[in-house]
């Protein structure tokens, strides 16, 4: 899992049937001390509660497909957690 910050949303009506009802969010990847690092990408929200401004944890590739109940789901990045404020404070002070 990696950290990412939700910076935006993606709206799509025409999509794979198994993606219907799945929220797609734009993610800025973060370092271990929450510094932005790398290019933004799109992740599917498996928590159903993530939104812009939040720092989240994300799994990739085959692990990402495991985050949803669908038998098949074409996602390669899934949000599986929303990081709490205490952790954020500790990390941004340079715990890494």
């Amino acid at each position: 899992m990696k950290f990412g910050k939700v910076i935006g949303t993606v709206v799509s009506t025409q999509k794979d049937a198994n993606l219907v009802g799945v929220t797609l969010l734009v993610i800025q990847p973060l370092d271990q001390d929450l510094t932005p690092k790398g290019s933004p990408y799109i992740a599917a929200d498996a928590t159903g509660q993530a939104g812009p401004g939040q720092v989240v944890t994300i799994v990739f590739s085959a692990d990402a497909t495991q985050a949803f109940p669908q038998r098949r789901i074409p996602v390669d990045a899934s949000i599986v957690g929303i990081v709490d404020d205490c952790t954020l404070a500790q990390l941004s002070q340079g715990a890494g």
Partner: peptide
């Protein structure tokens, strides 16, 4: 190990 992470909301597997 460099630090703990706590998530308020998480996937049931966690």
């Amino acid at each position: 190990v460099i630090g703990p992470v706590v998530c308020t909301v998480k996937h049931p597997a966690y």
